[in-house]
Design a protein around this nucleic acid. Structure first.
Length: 644
RNA sequence: GCUGCUGUAGCUCAGAGGUAGAGCACUCCCUUGGUAAGGGAGAGGUCGAGAGUUCAAUUCUCUCCAGCAGCACCA
């Protein structure tokens, strides 16, 4: 028998006969390690304890203490344990796939009756039984024909389909948890008892398409979360509760910012306070863009079909466009994008190279008939306002303009407290317009921009828009969630389709390149993201109601109004609250409404011409003179681009 | 769009085959109270819409609409 040498993490080497398993190595090192081991890493690959070792390798054993490995295994075994539990309860349910995901796993089943919440409880109970049985996990490599026949005999058509999809040269590995069997790449634990029985919870059941394809069968997906201890699980569940508290739909109601109606699904009714946030964003962006050399324009909401045919939208997105019926025998559509309107604007007069780069922005409201299931509060709507702009430039200017947009967007996100930004680069899709040469140029311009700025990014092959590749800016929020916001797209195609030109220095008519860019993206969505990020407690300059001046006694009312007046004149968004209510009541109400500053006025303040200041989230109050508080709050009300 | 669930007062929710209830909010009265809900009274609902079953439907059935979770989609 050949000998192999395993090099342990501490540098020690051990020699064994080829074909030995990591489980045997672990037991050889110590009895307790043999019991505690859950998997191994062999030359960097995560290795099942049952897989034989055939050659020299670096070798490390893992126990439940190696958190990353342990979580992966535990979650993966739980997927199998859950599938087993389901089949033990309902033998006719067909199994499909069950991968590990962030925080847990899911498994998709084909079953005629829907799983109910009570079913989840029953499954969970059965899973604990299986864990307590400490069923051994064993594995074998089968050849393809045997596996296919096995699944045909067992009436598991999805598994047969999976095997068909696996490359011919890949070994098919079968796993048994006790006498229950599944096709699986592995690795797995030694036995089901290695799963912490109190660290998991089944969360929900929902539909999911087989193989992610909406033309195929709808399966039932059960989601579970799993951690290595009860405490970790509880912490995760608490985190979910915290996230739920940030739900902008709930905060929007509590803060009286906006609402939705049945008769306008996916369209926002902005209340005064919500609209103020919205306007704050637009005004801020308007200033930043003006400073960056943009001009603002406005183009029609409804335009003739012919325009959308020229742009390509009609053929690519007709199903998702709102069409306008009129009595003049013309087809109109509500604009789903601003770019065709901007093309009209560009083409309206003969352009000189001296005008380029030409940057035209519009806070245009676009309408898209989004699938009903996609709608989600402010985050996915059917009519929304973009901070859209198009930059027309010469091919020579392209690279620099991309870099400028990139710089601007990062600087703006920073003003909103988003410093953790990463970028998705999406390249040419199958359905596209334009030549491969123009796509080469566009993609390389975006790639170069990221490389020169040294920004981390992920490439998404084939995910670009039909007219050009795109960058998408993804922000990480205060509790670690990612939100896709801004975009930068290079487009050689629309200028060509619209016959746009500029006159060059040598008098030739040449085609410009255009950039599409939006930095907030959708103002509606960005507002929603800000609400979630700050849990409604927006920074002072953005807060829709910055200050409430509340009277404690009726005799203070005149002075309250004087304070309100002074703050208003100083540019602060302020309201008086002189209702016949106790100060406790007022403080509670405005705190729930996330008003950052409450100024309370009683006899003392009237006499001393002061205010008592209570800031959101602080129990402690302080006293300030009227003049001081006015100057402090008027400074705080300045947007970051205007503050010193 | 697909699967499942939900729809009762402005909000959060209870309820039952015999045309409805609570708390908060709202209006009025009392109370002038010092930092997260002072007390009392009143008003408020075609029970999402339509059809069917029934002597009788808000309750049961079906269709539609909207919302929620997930999937698919996201120019």
């Amino acid at each position: 028998m050949a000998q192999i040498t395993l090099t342990l993490p501490d540098g020690n080497q051990r020699s064994y006969e080829a074909g030995i398993t990591p489980a045997e190595v672990a037991a050889d090192i110590s009895t307790s390690l043999g019991k505690k081991a859950i998997s191994a890493t062999v030359d960097g690959a995560h290795w099942d304890l049952a897989w034989p070792l055939e050659s020299d390798a670096s070798f490390a054993l893992h126990t439940i203490k190696d958190e990353d490995r342990a979580l992966e295994l535990v979650r993966h075994d739980l997927a199998h344990i859950m599938a087993r539990a389901v089949q033990e309860i309902w033998p006719d349910v067909k199994v499909t796939i069950g991968p590990v995901i962030e925080h847990g796993w899911y498994y998709d089943f084909d079953r005629a009756e829907p799983f109910t919440p009570e079913d989840l409880g029953a499954i969970e109970k059965k899973m604990r039984e299986i864990i307590n049985r400490r069923d051994p996990v064993t594995t074998e490599v089968w050849d393809r024909d045997r596996a296919v026949q096995f699944y045909k005999d067992n009436n598991e058509p999805y598994k047969v389909e999976l095997i068909d999809a696996i490359r011919g040269d890949e070994p098919l590995r079968m796993y048994w948890h006790g006498d229950w069997q599944d096709l699986c790449r592995g690795p797995h634990l030694q036995h089901t008892g290695q799963v912490p029985a109190d660290g998991f919870k089944l969360m929900s059941v929902a539909g999911a398409y087989w193989r992610g394809d909406s033309d195929r069968a709808m399966l039932q997906r059960i989601y579970g979360v799993a951690f290595l201890s009860k405490e970790r699980l509880r912490a995760h569940l608490n985190m979910l509760e915290e996230a739920a508290k940030r739900d902008h739909r709930k905060l929007g109601r509590e803060m009286d910012l906006f609402h939705f109606e049945e008769h306008a699904p996916g369209s926002v009714f902005w209340h005064p306070a919500g609209w103020r946030i919205f306007q704050n964003l637009i005004n801020y962006m308007r200033r930043r863009q003006e400073a960056a050399g943009y001009v603002e324009v406005n183009t029609p909401d409804i335009m003739d079909r012919a325009l959308w045919e020229t742009s390509g939208h009609w053929f690519n997105y007709m199903d998702n466009m709102f069409l306008a019926q009129t009595h003049d025998d013309r087809d109109y559509a509500l604009k789903p994008m601003n770019c065709p309107g901007h093309m009209m604007l560009y083409n309206h007069s003969l352009r000189s190279y001296r005008e380029l780069p030409m940057k035209i922005g519009e806070f245009g409201k676009v309408h898209r008939y989004e699938p009903s299931g996609a709608l989600h509060g402010l985050l996915r709507v059917r009519s929304f306002t973009q901070d859209d702009a198009h930059i027309y430039c010469t091919p020579e200017q392209l690279q620099e303009e991309c870099a400028k947009v990139n710089e601007l967007v990062l600087s703006i996100y920073k003003d909103f407290g988003f410093e953790d930004v990463h970028v998705k680069l999406s390249t040419r899709p199958e359905n596209r317009i334009g030549s491969d040469e123009s796509w080469d140029l566009s993609e390389s311009a975006l790639k170069t921009t990221l490389d020169e700025a040294g920004m981390r990014h992920t490439i998404f092959e084939g995910e670009g828009a039909f007219y050009g590749p795109k960058l998408e800016y993804v922000l990480r929020d205060a509790i670690g969630r990612d939100w896709q916001c801004g975009t930068l797209q290079v487009d050689y195609n629309l200028p060509e389709r619209f016959g746009s030109t500029y006159v060059s220095a040598s008098g030739e008519k040449l085609a410009p390149v255009m950039l599409h860019r939006a930095l907030f993206g959708s103002l509606e969505r960005f507002t929603g993201i800000l609400i979630e990020n700050w849990e409604g407690k927006l920074p002072f300059w953005l807060a829709p109601r910055q200050v409430v001046v509340a009277s404690i006694v009726t005799e203070a009312d005149d002075y309250v109004l004087e304070v309100v007046d002074a703050l208003k004149k100083a540019g602060v968004q302020v309201e008086a609250d002189v209702r016949n209510e106790k100060i406790n009541y007022k403080v509670r109400e405005h705190s729930v409404g996330k008003v950052p500053v409450i100024l309370a006025i009683g006899h003392r303040e009237v006499e001393d011409r002061t205010v008592t200041v209570r800031r959101l989230g602080e129990k402690q109050t302080s006293v300030a003179s009227l003049a001081d508080i006015v100057s402090e709050l008027s400074a705080a009300a300045l947007p970051p681009d205007l503050a010193n």
